[in-house]
């Protein structure tokens, strides 16, 4: 079955209250959920351990990009056919993940990316929309790739794509790095409409403009220094 070959990687950093429910919901559809606790300090690790048999822990915080790559390495070693990225704060919907998974499993693309704008864009709060639009414009300039929604954490990669795309940007710039790697690799990607569940909780966890500039800085340094 499609869901069984798909290993869902959930990077976790201080999400003790949310992670249990998110993983439980995921596992009703996707049996293989890998949680990578990125050195949380709030008891997330205990929640992760009881939520899934595939619990990994970074002893020190290394950033979301690093956590995703750790989960990916683990899942690939276990024979994953597809790798999915899913946020720990409950902002993604499992039914959207199913849609993306089917797109990759059917062979129409190597990578399926969640796109919160092509569907019901009004569901995205205005301040969020402006920030994310800025990120999109930035990417058109730097990688020449024209995506609707570059910083969406919901993705599904085929095994082939996951093996080719190695995330080295430890922190949040990994989203940008993935786009560049897709552009360079010639892998086939598709953006599919998804809905983000904006709750006070997930919104508080989201990026600020200051965070955005930090991402650009790390991204550019990474590009220049390799």
């Amino acid at each position: 079955m499609v869901a069984e070959g798909t290993w869902v990687v959930v990077p976790v950093y201080n999400e003790a209250t949310a992670i249990g429910g998110v993983v439980a919901e995921l596992r009703r559809t996707f049996p293989n959920v890998v949680c990578v606790d990125d050195g949380s300090t709030d008891g997330s690790w205990k929640a992760v351990l009881s939520a899934t048999p595939h619990a990994l822990r970074h002893m020190v915080n290394r950033g979301q990009g690093a956590a995703i790559q750790t989960g990916t390495d683990y899942a690939l070693r276990r024979g994953a056919q597809r790798i999915a990225h899913f946020d720990a704060d409950g902002q993604h919907r499992v039914e959207d993940l199913v849609t993306l998974t089917e797109a990759v499993a059917s062979g129409t693309c190597d990578i399926a990316l969640g796109d919160r704008f092509s569907g019901d864009a009004a569901a995205v709060p205005a301040a969020r929309r402006a920030l994310l639009r800025a990120a999109v414009a930035f990417h058109r300039l730097t990688s020449g790739i024209a995506l609707n929604d570059v910083h969406n954490g919901l993705r599904v990669l085929s095994r082939r794509a996951a093996e080719r795309i190695e995330i080295t940007a430890d922190r949040m710039a990994h989203a940008s790095e993935i786009i560049d790697l897709i552009a360079e690799s010639g892998l086939v990607y598709r953006e599919l409409p998804v809905r983000i569940r904006y709750t006070d909780y997930s919104r508080a966890k989201g990026q600020s403009w200051a965070g955005g500039f930090r991402i650009i800085f790390h991204y550019l340094v990474g590009r220049i220094l390799g």
Partner: peptide, 20 residues
């Protein structure tokens, strides 16, 4: 930092595989 990440990653995976 890069080396630290690789080290932390390998430890995390080994620990999980040992437990599993």
């Amino acid at each position: 930092r890069r080396e630290l990440t690789l080290l932390v990653r390998e430890l995390a995976i080994r620990e999980a595989e040992r437990r599993g």
